[in-house]
Every structure is written in structure tokens, then in C-alpha cells.
Computed example of a mutant assay.
Amino acid sequence: MADQVIPTQDSFGRLQDGTEINRFTFKNKNNITVRIINYGGIITDICVPDKNGKVADINLGFDDIKGYEKRHPYFGAICGRVANRIGGGKFTLDGKEYQLPVNNGPNHLHGGVKGFDKVVWKARVDDDNLVLTYVSPDGEEQYPGTLTTEVRYRLTNDNQLSIDYTATTTKATPINLTNHAYLNLAGQGFPNIEDHVLWIDAYTYTPLDENIIPTGVIAPVAGTAYDLRTPTRLGDRLKHVNNGKGYDINFCVGGQPGKLTRVASLEHPPSGRKMEVYTTEPGLQCYTGCNMVTGVFGKGGVEYQKFASVCLETQHFANSVNQPNFPNTILRPDQTYRHTSVYKFGLTL
């Protein structure tokens, strides 16, 4: 118990309907603080020291629950039942076609109009874990089956933030869960990520069509702007990716299925902050905030702009339910969905 980081609880305010939202705070012996609320399972703060010991919040978001209750780009949230896009919002499962709500052009994105990011999760502290549970009823957002999902957050004294996802269902259903934290290692108010250095251990990626849906091809990164196998300064790359729009693409990073594997690292040499990403998932969606072109006002009234953050979302490939050659995303009643990701914070050497 002495070496465990036990979360504390306080109130984060009330939703418009009066529901009180709870906030849980982890703080380890190295002065790293992570805060999570039970609305959307949202990580509201990740505060880490730089090479001089100065602590900054590296996680974009809002100061209060009112910001999160309004429409926003999934800051820090759990995304599901199916994260990422499903083309046309359609899929066929066991001979039956399903039409989901479309909320991203012609596509279904991150679980639909009211995905897991917009629901109140049941929360409890279990030893040094924050345990969030949500029961999604059969037919919610037009998905089949009652899906019971548990997400466990844990911060250790060796600076690892782990997220363990499990789920069971009463009917066959697609599932693809992730956390959508937006990160800027210089501090959440810093205007860009140009001095960040990104490494992704992926030899292949999934090219997209005009509707931002994978074509089904698994293509080599060699010779493309998607080759990040050598640590790359983002300021030297972003304007040359996707006609200047930056990254919003899935990298195929999977090692052995179910084995926790180091798949990415993000460094900010000026501050010395570093984050490594480990996952059991086959995919890593890298998104550099290209859709925040009009700006979003976040913590302290800061206007977040395009290229002010990077998301490294561990998950299955987008539109997998419609691509038989992609790793399977169908969960059946006799199975348990499992997914673990770890974000390890530290300093560059």
C-alpha cells in the first residue's frame, strides 16, 4: 500500500440536468498529477515536471464541466462503442444490416451522437484503481446488444498511467475503445507542437479515401510522409502531410496480439518532457488537431489552434467492421473484450 498511488475524490460540478460529476485525482511521489472525471471517463489534467522540475499541465481541456458538456473534439474522453470512423455508418453482422447515426460528414464517428464520451459512468475506487463502469443498452446509437464496459485507470510511482478496458455483450456487436487525450508536452496553452519529436514503430499504415475512410489497403510507410520509424521533428513534417492538414491516420503497430508493446514515443527537447506509449492494440491513430481550424477556447481561456496538440489513440483500425482483412472488432456473448494501454512519462536523456 505504501508505494501505491490512491486516488482522492471531489466534485467537478453539475451537469445541466443537475447530475453531480465526480473528479478523481492521482498524485505520485514524482509530482505527477492525473485527474479524471466520471463524465465521459475524461482525463481533465496530466501535470508533469520538466527537466528543471517545473510542472505544467500537458493535456488540453476545459476548466469546468460546462466546457465538457458542450460540443468539443473529445478532449481526454473514452470513445466508444466504436472509436474512429465507420464508413456511411453502416455495417452488416450475421446477415443483418445496421445503420448507425452519422455525425462526421457521411460517417459514424466515436460512437455516434451520444457516445461513451457523453455519458455518466459509475465510478468507484478499488485499491489504487479508479474503476469506471457503463452499461450501454441494446439499441443505444443503433448498436446491437447490451454492452457492459469497465475501464480502470491507474497511476504508478514509476510514472506509468495505465488504462485497462474490458467489456462483455449480450449480442454480437462491434467494439473499439480508446482514450482521446490531446497532448502538448510544452504545456497545454503552448500554441504548437513543432518542436515535438515523434517516433512510431509502424512499417505499414491504412491509406484513406476522400471520406477519410481506409481503402482496405495496408500500405508500407517507406518513402512516404507516414514513415516515423526514425524520430522526427513534427515542425519539419506536418506541412508536408496530407496537403498540409497534418496527421489523421492509423498506423499498424501491433506486435503479438494481446501483448503489451512499446509502439510510440513523443519528446519535447526544450522542456525535456517525454512520453512513451505501450499497447496491446494493433493500431495507433495519430491526429494532430487539423480540424481545430476555427479554434476552441480551453483552460484559462486559451484558444487551441490547428497543430496545438497531438493525439496518440491506441485502438483497432478505423472501419474494421467493413474490412474483413483488418483485425476483428466483433465481440460475441461468449467472449470478453480486453485492451490495455500505458502512457509512461519521463525526461529525455
Score class of each variant (00 low, 15 high):
320 S>T: 14
325 N>W: 03
274 K>S: 14
177 L>K: 03
221 V>W: 01
174 P>Q: 04
290 C>R: 08
187 G>T: 11
291 N>M: 11
140 E>T: 01
90 K>P: 00
282 P>N: 06
301 G>T: 06
330 I>W: 02
213 I>S: 05
73 P>M: 09
304 Y>H: 06
246 G>S: 06
183 L>W: 13
249 I>S: 07
342 V>P: 02
320 S>Y: 04
11 S>A: 11
185 L>G: 07
194 E>I: 00
152 R>L: 10
231 P>M: 06
241 V>H: 03
222 A>P: 00
125 V>G: 01
106 P>Y: 01
265 S>R: 14
227 D>A: 03
72 H>M: 08
240 H>K: 15
208 L>T: 08
331 L>C: 06
143 Y>V: 04
91 F>E: 06
149 T>L: 00
127 D>R: 13
71 R>Y: 13
258 G>L: 04
264 A>M: 08
6 I>Y: 07
323 Q>F: 08
330 I>D: 03
197 V>Q: 10
80 G>P: 07
227 D>T: 10
130 L>R: 08
207 P>K: 08
256 Q>D: 14
157 N>A: 13
208 L>N: 05
332 R>G: 04
156 T>L: 10
195 D>A: 09
208 L>A: 09
342 V>M: 07
250 N>H: 09
231 P>I: 12
311 C>P: 09
242 N>F: 00
337 Y>D: 03
242 N>K: 05
109 L>D: 01
126 D>E: 15
14 R>M: 07
86 I>H: 03
113 V>R: 15
31 N>K: 15
219 A>Q: 14
225 A>F: 00
325 N>R: 09
321 V>Q: 12
3 D>L: 11
41 G>F: 12
263 V>D: 03
242 N>Q: 03
176 N>F: 04
76 G>C: 13
52 N>R: 12
285 Q>N: 02
130 L>P: 06
1 M>D: 10
232 T>V: 03
176 N>I: 03
267 E>W: 04
210 E>S: 14
210 E>R: 10
171 K>S: 10
229 R>F: 03
222 A>C: 00
19 T>V: 15
142 Q>K: 15
56 A>V: 13
108 H>Q: 01
265 S>Q: 14
288 T>G: 04
168 T>I: 12
39 Y>F: 15
102 V>A: 05
127 D>N: 14
74 Y>L: 15
76 G>Q: 11
94 D>R: 09
47 C>N: 13
148 T>R: 10
130 L>K: 08
59 N>I: 06
1 M>S: 13
130 L>N: 05
235 G>T: 04
294 T>H: 11
58 I>G: 02
138 D>P: 05
250 N>D: 15
17 D>H: 09
111 G>R: 10
213 I>T: 00
84 N>G: 08
121 W>V: 06
25 T>I: 15
135 V>N: 13
239 K>H: 12
107 N>R: 00
189 G>L: 02
60 L>S: 03
65 I>V: 08
41 G>Q: 08
50 D>I: 09
159 N>R: 12
214 P>A: 07
164 D>W: 04
241 V>E: 13
49 P>T: 03
212 I>A: 14
284 L>H: 05
106 P>D: 08
248 D>Y: 00
150 E>V: 14
75 F>C: 13
69 E>N: 09
188 Q>M: 13
25 T>H: 04
284 L>G: 02
203 Y>F: 00
176 N>C: 09
202 A>C: 02
74 Y>S: 12
255 G>Y: 11
288 T>R: 02
